[in-house]
């Protein structure tokens, strides 16, 4: 029983890592622009396809392909901010509708470019298996967790200690006050958007080799990532991290005790329970304009 729980915890950490990467991007964008980008899961999927393209067609180097994919998606995110979200600023309803429309646009674009069938992405270097007692995990599995933890650390230090990170936090707390003290909030907007989509691309590029690359691969991470955000506290960056991991581990460990049919329900039941105790989420922060 104990080893089963341990094994499921490691499974959950891996799934949770992907939720965390999605949640982080969404929460950063939500913080500065106050918009929930529902197309974030689709951007993860596009990131995986772009990484597949660089890896299989062009470079043959997995780390390089991950970076290129993150860079391409950052540019895409910046373009989306400029072309779609900025003109709709101040109109939350239209921003949400636009982000839902983007899901259709990107899903069909990918199908038009790569076809509807799933792609395989075999990375020989990370396919090796690491034995842990009776269990075995692929290097890729552990890589997903390690990279996510590293990204979380770097992002925290960036937000906490760098000047621009402080500007992002300031804009999240109070856009007007940030403008008053001379923070270029529009620049904060597009850089944060680019950063957020790059994180989604990273998620896609990391799970691509573990499973397959297919047009719907971002749907579940998007929904679970969103649950993680709500659970951790809307607008809170540490909340997104903790929330993502809690969802991932809870749904995975639950399968030891409950039929797997309840897996998805468990994720949301945990969310609801935590919100009952802490209505603002674990790290609930009051976000500008919410009360």
């Amino acid at each position: 029983m104990l080893s089963a729980v341990l094994e499921q915890t490691l499974n959950g950490l891996m799934a949770g890592s992907v939720y965390v990467l999605v949640a982080l991007g969404m929460v950063l964008i939500y913080g500065v622009m106050h918009v929930l980008n529902f197309a974030h899961g689709v951007l993860l999927m596009v990131g995986a396809y772009v990484c597949h393209f660089f890896f299989v067609r062009l470079t043959g180097s997995y780390p390089l392909s991950i970076l290129l994919s993150a860079a391409v998606l950052a540019l895409l995110g910046i373009a989306l901010e400029r072309a779609v979200f900025r003109p709709l600023q101040g109109n939350l309803r239209n921003q949400v509708i636009a982000s839902l429309g983007l899901i259709l646009v990107f899903e069909n674009l990918v199908i038009a470019l790569w076809g509807p069938n799933a792609l395989q992405m075999k990375v020989a270097a990370t396919a090796a298996l690491v034995p842990l007692g009776e269990m075995r995990f692929s290097v890729q599995h552990l890589l997903v967790i390690a990279v996510t933890l590293a990204v979380v650390l770097v992002l925290f230090s960036f937000l906490k200690f760098s000047k621009f990170g402080t500007a992002i936090r300031a804009t999240s707390q109070d856009r007007m006050a940030a403008m008053v003290v001379g923070i270029p909030v529009e620049r904060v907007d597009w850089i944060t958007f680019g950063l957020g989509t790059a994180l989604a691309a990273l998620g896609g590029a990391l799970i691509g080799p573990l499973f397959i690359v297919f047009p719907q691969m971002g749907d579940a991470p998007m929904v679970k990532g969103l649950a993680g955000i709500l659970l951790g506290g809307m607008g809170s960056v540490p909340g997104a991290v903790i929330g993502g991991f809690i969802i991932g581990i809870a749904e995975s460990v639950s399968t030891v005790f409950l039929p797997t049919d309840y897996r998805d329900s468990v994720a949301f039941i945990v969310m609801v329970l935590i919100l009952l105790v802490w209505p603002r989420g674990i790290f609930g922060v009051s976000v500008r304009g919410e009360d």
Binding site: M135, D219, A220, T255, T260, D264
Partner: peptide, 16 residues
């Protein structure tokens, strides 16, 4: 469900 690709929970339970 259709679209799920991570079978790790099932694999662990089959082992257990």
């Amino acid at each position: 469900n259709v679209g799920e690709v991570d079978f790790s929970s099932h694999v662990s339970n089959i082992r257990a």
